[in-house]
Nucleic acid binder design. Sequence first.
DNA 1: TATGAATGAGCTTTCATTCAT
DNA 2: AATGAATGAAAGCTCATTCAT
Lengths: 211, 211, 211, 211
Amino acid sequence: MTNARDKMVSIDSSRDDVRDAIFQSAIELFARRGYYATTIRDIVEKAGVTQPMVYYYFGSKEKLFISCVRELFKKIVKTYENIDTNISFANYLKAFLDVGNDIYADSPESVLLMVNYIHSPEEYPKFKNIKNLAWKPVQMLIDVIGDAKDDGIVRKDIDQITTAIMVFGASTMGKSLHYINKNIADIGFDEEPKYFSGQIQKIILGGILNN
Amino acid sequence: MTNARDKMVSIDSSRDDVRDAIFQSAIELFARRGYYATTIRDIVEKAGVTQPMVYYYFGSKEKLFISCVRELFKKIVKTYENIDTNISFANYLKAFLDVGNDIYADSPESVLLMVNYIHSPEEYPKFKNIKNLAWKPVQMLIDVIGDAKDDGIVRKDIDQITTAIMVFGASTMGKSLHYINKNIADIGFDEEPKYFSGQIQKIILGGILNN
Amino acid sequence: MTNARDKMVSIDSSRDDVRDAIFQSAIELFARRGYYATTIRDIVEKAGVTQPMVYYYFGSKEKLFISCVRELFKKIVKTYENIDTNISFANYLKAFLDVGNDIYADSPESVLLMVNYIHSPEEYPKFKNIKNLAWKPVQMLIDVIGDAKDDGIVRKDIDQITTAIMVFGASTMGKSLHYINKNIADIGFDEEPKYFSGQIQKIILGGILNN
Amino acid sequence: MTNARDKMVSIDSSRDDVRDAIFQSAIELFARRGYYATTIRDIVEKAGVTQPMVYYYFGSKEKLFISCVRELFKKIVKTYENIDTNISFANYLKAFLDVGNDIYADSPESVLLMVNYIHSPEEYPKFKNIKNLAWKPVQMLIDVIGDAKDDGIVRKDIDQITTAIMVFGASTMGKSLHYINKNIADIGFDEEPKYFSGQIQKIILGGILNN
DNA sequence: TATGAATGAGCTTTCATTCAT
DNA sequence: AATGAATGAAAGCTCATTCAT
């Protein structure tokens, strides 16, 4: 089952086993419970490591949180930036929503964390410099809608900011609901993100395109 | 010096004073910082009362939180329920959004609290029974859109849940951003809620109505 | 044995029993072990109170230390200031040494604490503003010797600073040794402070007076 | 590239380098901050080595401290023992004070460490066996003054212990003040040790000699 | 009603030390 | 001879809560 090569790989990758375990546990707990309701003891217990390891690898609870958030947000932003912009507006919107679904499929916690982060006015007062990262995807969407207005594809009386927030707000809220419903408590809104995003596309396009 | 009537008045009003002060401080702090980042000390300091008063009037931090949330949510639900349902769908949507703006104008923290509450999967694990209240307005919107579909006003291929979430998600996110931008940190999305809701109406109606 | 009046007194004075117990334990432990080797747990155990009481009454370990030091030093300075300055230099020197002995008899730890404090260059880096208090007695002695030089009582070639340090250094070191020998470990220098101060007087007066 | 001789040399010198670096850093930090306020991390950071090296070369923090103190104290004692005892009492006193100044000039920290050590009743509870070394110079001075009494040079009513403590206490306190004033904080007593010791000699001799 | 004082439990963090390599 | 990684124990401190008055 395990040949020599696998072993080597596992040795290599085991270099940061502890760090990774802390990181993963931290993301999940921060995402589900928030910063203050998550304790270092929770994190290390889930990760199966000892408390000082958090300080060895990350320095403090705050720095651990920032590491988690920054790393996730960077990855998210990068994924959105990979969308080819030389496509039609309708296709871009579809791609934007698909990327959101992919991210959620790959790491549901990252979406939760982002939503929580965006909506917590003072819970993370010292982490403002991450705000720009968190809002980057929305900003990208705003720009694309603005361009589409310039090109006459989107109606001139449509506000790109509102539109972007509708797309982003609805798709993230849909995922947030899906996560809660699946993992925590039955709240009755359990559609698949894919279904939501298909509907969002249709409604948005119907509502903002010319003609 | 102090006659019986004065005493009664002062006792009556002072009782409410203390309870109200705690209540108001708690709402604001819970809304801005979340449940776990808010301490009893923070609350009583802001309210200008002593710690045991919280336990005298509310029993515990948890019960205080539930009181705050329940009271606010009930008020919010009641306000939405006051909307006359014997009006056109377009007018109902407008009224729904207007009510949201009124609530925000009257008590911005209640909106913040609701948004946070909805998006926090495990931060408030023991307070699940409030979930129904929190989702009531969305549910009402879903029902109205459903009726409008039955009446042939809204297209049959439109999902009422997605639509409701788009309306609700965008309008609450807009307010949340407005609050943060005005009171806490400049994040660059500072349109007035009214502007947002006007745009939302237009886009939604354009996207879902028949013809 | 205990009449009503005693009870009342004890009730009155019991108001700050806990604070006093912490204060006394802290002084003794800080004096004997130094700041860093003394833990809050040590202090409260000795005082028979719980940990949060330290924070209730003093705010932090650092503030507790500063409170102890400042209060003791103020008392010490005040005692030295009570010496009548309208007496002969020889009598002043005697009085100065006697006051030192009285303080030591009353509160040996205060002398220990002062000596340790004076000699610890960086152990208490944030407590510099207490330094002035700690050096006040020496400064007073310097001034008196200076005056005695002006009056022709002390020889002009004698440096008042050196003289004061000899008096102060020897008498405090003598007490420090006495304390250690009596309470901690036999180190073989166990003369009574009174004996030391008599000798110091004699030697100093023989060494600095005119003729 | 590297031949055997080079290896040996580099091994030899590097071994001493690491040990010495730890030793020097430890002395300075222990002297300035005391035992408990100094951490192994502080020491290795200052020395530019890794933590386990302390354990490899010294076994433990406690043993490192004892090594430092013992080595310094032995050197100090040896220096005092080098004073020729076949000289006049006055010259011996001068030589004694000069040696103190030389030691301070060569290694100010050793003086600080000794003073702190002597005055710390319980900070170093397990290191009592070093006490004898620390007090050796004073003991030597006591003996010499005793001899001078026997020889009729010093007055019979003079106590040699008090005298020794005055000499030792004043000269070490003078150096301690000088160090603090020069390296840490302005406390206003900044005379050079040489000046102090000249004055001490004069006052002591004037105060204790016959005639 | 209201308060100052008190508490057990738990928090984040750091310490001296050791292990595997 | 040297290191990065790991650990148990304990540090200072704060929390929600309660008691006596």
